[in-house]
Write a protein that binds this DNA or RNA. Structure first.
Lengths: 163, 163
DNA sequence: TCTAAATATTTTATGTTTGTAATATCTTGC
DNA sequence: GCAAGATATTACAAACATAAAATATTTAGA
């Protein structure tokens, strides 16, 4: 199914799998480098954690609110997990839980006005930090890499849960 | 300091920072997609966590062992954290702690023979999984992206802890 | 030299996030 | 009404970050 094993002469370990491994390690290192800085700045400047910011960003894109399950799916995070993050955001009065009349099993979670205005401030700062961190990358180049990573995600997802 | 704000006519929000933001979000999504699969497979096939595998990989590259501080620096993980991971690996008899005669403050951590042989098995499977996940990417393309990410990491690191 | 301060290494403590599994509650199909 | 499925929470273990504490080493100064 794969044309991968082509260069393979005289006992040389095939370089393609090593090259792909290097790509993965670099991918990991890149996202960790950025993540570490974001985490640090969110903590010191806004006293918020990265997952809490992720939740607020997702809720900001869904103005009418979402259920916990929708939230956990969009965040790619287990449902049993979102509960705790929401708990803390509720304690901080950034989000609120609403019980919909239709389905009493679920909750609708949404940003409070305070949460929405706070988020827009943080989001602006966040965009600025990224802009600064990636300042060497122009629009065309950033778009090129974005497209390659898009393809990578599709390639990986297509092979998940298969075997 | 930045040439970033160039396209900026008629109140249009500048697209470059948005494009960089997209790049970052895609980077995050890519690494999480791969990470989730690795985590799942390591757990089901080898009953080991991803951080434990990371530690073993680092120790395998340093055959004579390392101190906890060296380990936490190479892993980009806080030192107070490595303790717990090592504790579990020691309990599983995969690594051992040695007290060096030279510096009685520190410990040398290294793989046991069992740990080393177990790691080589897992590492082979790991490389195979990555090879399969990234099968659409050829050597030249993988190398290109690797180089771009290398540059990205350097760009990000150069701006850390500065302001 | 000898004591005290500064430094280095690691662990412990606390809080947050994460995943999996088990549980409680509610809805829906029959 | 009851079984099957959906939804959210709770429980537990691992990982992670930060801060503080414990221990060992080095250095400065009298």
């Amino acid at each position: 199914m794969s044309v991968a094993t082509k260069v393979r002469e005289r006992g040389v370990p095939r370089p393609i799998s090593k090259q792909r491994l290097r790509l993965w390690l670099r991918l990991l290192r890149s996202s960790r480098a950025i993540e570490a800085q974001l985490r640090e700045r969110l903590r010191t400047k806004f006293s918020i954690t990265l997952p809490q910011f992720d939740v607020m960003a997702t809720l900001a894109r869904n103005d009418e609110g979402m259920t916990m399950t929708e939230l956990s799916r969009q965040l790619m995070v287990s449902n049993g997990n979102v509960t705790g993050i929401i708990d803390r955001l509720v304690a901080d009065k950034m989000v609120l839980r609403q019980a919909p009349a239709s389905d009493r099993r679920s909750f609708i979670v949404r940003l409070t006005p305070k949460g929405a205005s706070q988020f827009s401030v943080i989001a602006r700062a966040h965009e600025g930090w990224i802009d600064e961190m990636l300042v060497e990358f122009g629009a065309a180049e950033a778009e090129l890499i974005t497209d390659q990573l898009d393809r990578l995600v599709r390639c990986v997802r297509a092979r998940e849960a298969k075997p």
